[in-house]
């Protein structure tokens, strides 16, 4: 699975993307986030503030119960702040 980090999640994780092998027990977004937090202090720091972490699976917004699979592209980022005014 390809995991991408944006904005301050990228800073805390220390990189923009990584390729991870998903354990069989991880089947949805909530399980994925719980597992990622255990991988390293950087992962834990990036995901410490769970309520503000937004998730996209294959470039579509995803919720906690949405499924994830080994071939997916998962992006983790804070709430978006585009536009102006």
């Amino acid at each position: 699975m390809k995991v991408l980090y944006f904005a301050w999640l990228k800073t805390r994780r220390g990189l923009a993307e990584e390729e991870l092998t998903l354990p069989a027990a991880v089947t949805n977004v909530a399980e994925l986030l719980a597992w990622l937090r255990t991988l390293s202090p950087g992962h834990a720091a990036a995901l410490a503030d769970r309520p503000v972490v937004r998730v996209a699976v294959n470039q579509e917004y995803a919720r906690a119960e949405d499924k994830v699979a080994p071939g997916d592209e998962v992006a983790l980022f804070p709430p978006v702040t585009g536009g102006v005014g």
């Binding site: 904005a7 804070p78 709430p79 978006v80 585009g82 536009g83």
Partner: peptide
Amino acid sequence: LKTKAPFWKL
């Protein structure tokens, strides 16, 4: 677009 498009300001 402000709440949906993935852009982040630094």
